[in-house]
């Protein structure tokens, strides 16, 4: 697993898509902050420093299996939040994770399809970890691990746990 870390990116998804063609599976693009982070339907994802933002280039997988993986990725994140941080996550299908009624994590899988073939698949995860506070318009709908626990968590450790969980799940389903 190769992790490419960036101080600041427009979007880890965008970067991962750019490099996907010439990258090994499980190459991970990690950014300390995103200026144009996005989720499904190109919805803006608030991505200041402190949060965990990454996109993993997946191995070639059938499109049907990717659908399942996307949903399972939310379970992977929820599992870590519950087991490691004793939070009570709620998975809002398809792929958002909530804590105390507020969004804490968003997941997006993007496939690049050439003709009939899935050329590349990228799973992107934005997890609000060490975000101290949100802007007024997001305060009521978003939260972070730090806000919930009142303590800082280790992004790198969480990243590796999530990636290992996803890898394991993909091996099981495909």
């Amino acid at each position: 697993m190769k992790i490419l870390e960036f101080e600041k990116l427009e979007s880890t998804q965008k970067k991962a898509k750019e490099i996907a063609k010439n990258s090994e599976p499980w190459t991970v693009v990690l950014a300390k902050e995103q200026t144009v982070g996005y989720g499904r339907k190109r919805n803006f994802w608030y991505s200041p420093r402190g949060g965990l933002y990454f996109s993993a280039i997946l191995p070639k997988t059938k499109i049907e299996d990717l659908q399942i993986l996307t949903i399972l990725a939310a379970f992977c994140v929820a599992k870590i939040l519950k087991e490691d941080f004793k939070l009570e996550p709620f998975i809002k299908l398809p792929n958002d994770v909530y804590v105390n009624g507020k969004k804490i994590c968003g997941i997006l899988t993007e496939n690049i399809i050439f003709g009939k073939e899935v050329r590349n698949s990228i799973i992107g995860i934005g997890l609000n970890t060490n975000i101290d506070q949100f802007p007024e318009d997001l305060k009521k709908i978003a939260t972070s691990v730090k806000i919930e626990l009142n303590k800082k968590v280790e992004n790198e450790e969480i990243l590796k746990k999530i990636l290992n969980e996803i890898k394991e799940k993909l091996e099981i389903i495909s």
Partner: peptide, 20 residues
């Protein structure tokens, strides 16, 4: 070849369909 034609939202995923 390789130009983006459509964005297809499907089953929790976004699919960029490129021209072959």
């Amino acid at each position: 070849e390789g130009q983006k034609l459509f964005l297809l939202s499907a089953m929790k995923m976004e699919n960029e369909i490129l021209s072959d």
